[in-house]
Nucleic acid binder design. Structure first.
Length: 971
RNA sequence: GGGCGAUUAGCUCAGCUGGUCAGAGCGCCACGUUUACACCGUGGAUGUCGGGGGUUCGAACCCCUCAUCGCCCACCA
């Protein structure tokens, strides 16, 4: 099976063939075999240059299986298999993401537990339930446990979830090396995340800051810019009267959030706005609450929005934060972390009426408070008109369902160029170095980096996740000293500061004056996920893996997480290693349902991937996935899967046929076991050499496409060549390949040439198709190369091998012979007779060069077409061709114009009729245009004929079978 | 509002740097059981290449413009 540069022989070890082929059972049979034989195991003993390493996207362990998984993972697997056959030691691990909110909730509900960071680790902890899935356990019924215990439960549960994914991926035929799996909450992974953080801290790349930031009131955590999602949200414009402090009248402002009125700290107008600019510097009194606020000028106040005057509250939106910061305004927060209004009346509200209204609002949600304020304003007459409904875009946490609030808190940030131009430029430069497939996805990266306006907020006020490896000293007065965090040594990692004690302290000093206290926050899940290259390649371990695999070669991922996963991974790698984490990234598109809606869980139109695999087989589903280019949305199309299944069956049948020839006894029973030795020296017939020539082209083109990550293009090239091989070449050489017992030496050589070509070609197609259809190709490969190992470890074909075997015979001989055969078939099809019907005589008409090429394969053509009688040739002259081309062009164009006219006439029906004069003019114009079009077609045809006369493009005039006389009784 | 993709046969999609670029498969119609394959074969019909301008000897392809669909970013008074 070897195919080295110098080889001219491919040997085969033939196995018994089944009497009937089938695709059923192949997945079970081969996935087991591959696992047992470690077909996809990463050897790990070769230098970096001979390794191809893939940073696999970890699916969410608690998530649901989705055909989208099948789709994008197949794309990656095709590349992995291709690279493996190209001789690389492929490092293709699998990861599972069991970090983050979805898992946190799942573990809570499954085991009936919740994290309490004040509890110590309990090695004997038993959760109250095992598997209460479906039932929601109320928070008060959840048993508290330490974070470490919670993580242990999570690891147990994830192991269950992972099984489902592993089953699916195994069935699908992903050539993953399961020995290199990871999960993001695991011990090694926590270690990497904490170590990378400590390194960042040491280099000043992370910092903490007390500042207003976006806050989700449902999950009660800060969220990062990358996790925002703007959505339409209904609101109402309320027009409020602010009173001039000098009593000279009112100023109106509009707001959708009247409940923030008590938090108002200023009114802003545009300095250019002549309606208001004389107010700048004066004071206004807020309605209801009677608080004096100053009027400021700022260009961010838009004159055409609302009334042009806007109230600034701490904080209603990010513009408020900007004004607050730039204009040094007072801070009057009234919204709590849970989204409710503060219970106590703030000291800046001093009027009795204001204090009364605020008491009404206290401890209410913003939504209820809004109604209360609006009602009070109406009563006081300070609400002008009725509130007007509006839809506006509002920021949400992508997993949340309430608008984000802005809350001031202490958070950790990682520098990502959001506040630092130098770093931003470096990261943009990294983007330029990365090869995006498809390339246009690069723009999403650039857009995102250019649009960053804050550093990456990496702390989350959740309980589950990778803890920050930090403690803080507690001062003698009981205050926490956030400015001097205590860090562990790297070799102590992973730690949980809520249960572990820092060096130099006793456990009993926790939360005591002169003692220490834990950083209770956890890191953003992306803070771990951004380190998947470091995690899988064993960064910082001395087993040699890192040196062989990092920087990695490929990051496949979804286009929706360019701003998160792709970008954050580049940030970490840039900071830690001053390199890109990988050289290439492939972005897959979405799956659309048959109605062209994006498939998503929320829409309920998701297809469970096991169904199509059951129905059509893994190869067929892979075929559907492989047909879609990277970055392009694909329609869920079972029709395409049917075609995949058809290809599978064709592979098996064609292989069986090729391998059976010459091994059959008189009863057509295949003799058992045999060796074959296919030497290119035995390929002596021009037609067979032409096949080699074509094969060389196919290998060259498919290889080049795959090198460019264009798996769909390569598949088309391979597939169409394979079908053409089956439909044409196989039919052409059948007779010669069978041979006859009393054949002459020349005929025997012809038979050998055909069998050799069939064997080599089939061998080649199995290799070419192996990355796409791993099961059928492996099955057929087993018949051909029994005991010689997997096709998936076989070398990828080399164009030069087939090129050499072609001995410069042009592939066109195959085309012309195929055309001649097709012309005979056409004659029979038009006569509505069986293909077996003999042809008594025939004249082949065509241009000279084509006829000459066809003659090289004449005996094969005549045998395949069952021509038993006289054969003649008519060489088409240039004039013939010109006439033919022109006639055809004119007739085509005339027909076309006729059809168009008919269609337009149909369209015009029902519309109001034109006046006779209009109709005449229109008809004249149209006729003129049509005649011109026909004339143009004629000209074009003439030009083409001229070109033909010069000997250019001579293959395009088909060979025609004329004057065919069929022997109607002859079969 | 800014950006990116898409728009080609009834359907799913190819068409590379403008010149055999009007294509494939499915579906449809007709015919055919041929010693690999009825989960089959052979043949056939089907398009103003989203609309409108422009550049060019020549445009599905380049430019302008409009439209529709999808996605990303900005827009929170």
């Amino acid at each position: 099976m070897a195919q080295d540069d110098n080889t001219e022989i491919i040997t085969a070890n033939l196995a018994p063939l089944p009497s009937k082929v089938g695709v059923e059972g192949l997945e079970e049979k081969w996935s087991k075999r591959w696992a047992a034989e470690k077909t996809y195991t990463f050897a790990g003993n070769r230098p970096r240059g001979e390794v191809y390493s893939i940073d696999t996207p970890p699916p969410t362990a608690s998530g649901h299986l989705h055909v989208g998984h099948v789709f994008s993972y197949t794309h990656t697997d095709i590349i992995a298999r291709y690279k493996r056959m190209r001789g690389y030691d492929v490092f293709y691990p699998m990861g599972f993401d069991d970090n983050g909110l979805p898992t946190e909730r799942r573990v809570q509900n499954y085991y009936g537990v919740r994290v309490d960071t004040s509890l110590p680790y309990d090695p004997d902890f038993e959760p109250p339930f095992h598997g209460t899935e479906g039932k929601k356990i109320e928070a008060r019924d959840q048993v508290p446990c330490s974070r470490t215990n919670f993580i242990e439960l999570c690891e147990q549960l994830s192991a269950e979830d992972e099984k489902q994914f592993r089953n699916l991926f195994t069935r699908l035929g992903l050539s993953v090396d399961w020995a290199h799996s990871y999960h993001t909450i695991g011990e090694r992974e926590r270690t990497v995340a904490q170590k990378a953080f400590l390194r960042n801290l040491g280099r000043g790349e992370v910092y903490q800051k007390q500042a207003p930031g976006l806050w989700d009131v449902t999950f009660q955590t800060a969220v990062a810019q990358a996790e925002l999602e703007s959505r339409q949200y209904p609101g109402k414009y309320h027009k409020l009267a602010f009173h001039k402090a000098d009593g000279s009248g009112d100023v109106y402002i509009e707001t959708t959030r009247p409940e923030l009125l008590p938090a108002c700290v200023a009114v802003i107008v545009n300095p250019e706005d002549e309606r208001y600019n004389d107010l700048i510097g004066t004071e206004l009194i807020t309605p209801l609450f009677g608080v004096r606020v100053k009027v400021y000028g700022h260009e961010k106040a838009e004159m055409d929005k609302g009334t042009g005057a806007v109230m600034c509250c701490t904080f209603g939106d990010t513009t408020d934060v900007e004004w607050w910061r730039e204009l040094h305004l007072a801070t009057r927060p009234i919204i709590l972390r849970n989204g409710r209004i503060t219970e106590e009346v703030p000291e800046w509200i001093t009027t009795d009426e204001g204090r009364r209204v605020f008491k009404e609002m206290g401890w209410k949600t913003t939504f209820s408070a809004r109604t209360i304020v609006a009602d009070e304003l109406k009563k006081s007459g300070e609400l002008i008109g009725e509130p007007r409904p509006t839809m506006r875009m509002t920021n949400f946490y992508e997993k949340g369902d309430k608008p984000l609030e802005i809350i001031t808190s202490r958070q950790w940030y990682l520098r990502n160029g959001g506040t630092d131009q130098d770093l931003r430029q470096q990261l943009l430069e990294r983007g330029k170095q990365l090869r995006f497939h498809p390339d246009f996805m690069r723009q999403r990266y650039d857009n995102w980096v250019e649009g960053l306006n804050t550093d990456w907020l990496i702390s989350r006020q959740r309980f589950f996740g990778v803890p920050f490896p930090l403690w803080y000293p507690v001062k003698a007065n009981g205050e926490t000293d956030f400015d001097h965090p205590i860090t562990p040594d790297e070799d102590e990692l992973p730690i949980d500061p809520t249960t572990d004690t820092p060096a130099g302290y006793e456990a009993g000093q926790r939360d005591k004056p002169n003692g220490f206290t834990a950083e209770k926050d956890v890191m953003d899940t992306w803070a771990t996920s951004s380190l998947t290259p470091q995690i899988v390649t064993h960064w910082g371990e001395d087993d040699g893996l890192y040196e062989r695999t990092f920087p990695m070669d490929l990051r496949p991922q979804g286009q929706d997480i360019i701003r998160t996963w792709l970008f954050s991974t580049i940030v970490r790698s840039h900071l830690e290693s001053d390199t890109l984490p990988w050289s290439d990234t492939t972005l897959s598109g979405w799956i659309l349902d048959p109605d062209h809606k994006k498939m998503s869980k929320s829409k309920g139109n998701v297809v469970v991937p096991n169904e199509p695999i059951d129905k059509f087989g893994a190869d067929a589903v892979r075929y559907w996935a492989a047909s879609a280019r990277l970055g392009m949305d694909a329609t869920y199309d079972t029709g395409q899967m049917k075609i995949g299944r058809r290809l599978d069956i064709k592979i098996l049948n064609a292989a069986k046929f090729v391998l059976a020839i010459g091994r059959e006894d008189e009863n057509h029973e295949v003799t058992q076991g045999a060796h074959a030795s296919w030497s290119t020296h035995n390929i002596t017939r021009p037609l067979d050499r032409a096949v080699m020539s074509r094969l060389a082209d196919v290998v060259r083109d498919a290889t080049s496409a795959l090198d460019d990550y264009e798996h769909a293009k390569a598949l088309r090239i391979i597939e169409s060549a394979f079908w053409s091989f089956c439909d044409n070449y196989l039919e052409l050489v059948k007779n010669r390949a069978y041979g006859t017992p009393d054949a002459s030496d020349a005929d025997k050589a012809g038979t050998l040439s055909a069998r050799t070509t069939l064997g080599l070609t089939m061998d080649c197609f199995l290799r070419l198709l192996a990355p796409y259809m791993p099961y059928a190709t492996e099955e057929a490969w087993g018949w051909m190369h029994e005991g010689e190992g997997s096709v998936h470890r076989a070398p990828w074909p080399k164009a030069s091998f087939y090129r050499a075997a072609a001995l410069k015979v042009p592939a066109e001989i195959l085309d012309q012979a195929s055309q001649a055969l097709a012309s005979l078939r056409k004659a029979k099809s038009e006569a509505k007779v069986s293909m077996k019907t003999p042809i008594l005589n025939v004249t082949f008409a065509g241009i000279g060069s084509a006829l000459d090429q066809m003659r090289e394969a004449m005996t094969d053509v005549l045998e395949a077409g069952r021509v038993s009688g006289e054969v003649s040739f008519r060489e088409l002259t240039l004039d013939d061709i010109r006439k033919k081309l022109i006639d055809q062009a004119v007739s085509n164009e005339t027909e076309r114009q006729k059809r168009i006219a008919e269609k337009q006439a149909k369209k015009a029906e029902g519309k109001k009729p034109l006046s006779p004069e209009q109709a005449r003019k229109k008809a004249e114009a149209l006729t003129k245009r049509r005649l011109a079009a026909i004339e143009q077609a004629r000209k074009k045809a003439e030009e083409e004929a001229e070109q033909l006369g010069k000997g250019e493009g001579g293959t395009e005039i088909p060979i025609l079978a004329e004057d065919t006389h069929l022997d109607e009784n002859g079969d």
